[in-house]
């Protein structure tokens, strides 16, 4: 399953709950969700620890808009909207953690 997260981990617990709940799959960070995938942020260790169960992606346009595209956590793949579409298509189901 593809999990879509659009909240900063510092504002809401969407990503935190998702990591504790889902058995694994893919995570796409969009909008304010991309802040989770930056080097040195306090949530990064938890995200990194989850990477053996989840493949993590972040939307490039949202990273760039926020001035953080140059400090993306190692192992997180950047995708554009076309990549977003492919992720949805390649996973049987998806869920937006609003």
């Amino acid at each position: 399953m593809l999990h879509i997260v659009n909240k900063s981990p510092f504002e809401r617990n969407s990503l935190d709950t998702l990591l504790d709940t889902s058995p694994g799959g893919a995570i796409l960070l969009i909008e304010d969700g991309v802040y989770a995938a930056t080097k040195g942020n306090a949530f990064e260790p938890k995200l990194k620890a989850a990477m053996d169960k989840f493949k993590v992606y972040a939307l490039q346009g949202d990273l760039e808009a926020r001035g953080i595209a140059d400090r993306v956590t190692d192992g997180v793949a950047m995708v554009d909207y076309g990549g977003f579409v492919d992720l949805v298509a390649n996973n049987k189901t998806n869920q937006s953690w609003l």
């Binding site: 554009d80 909207y81 076309g82 579409v85 492919d86």
Partner: peptide
């Protein structure tokens, strides 16, 4: 943007 990308990919 997502919808536009969908259409561009022929979905």
């Amino acid at each position: 943007h997502f919808t536009k990308a969908l259409l561009a990919k022929g979905h």
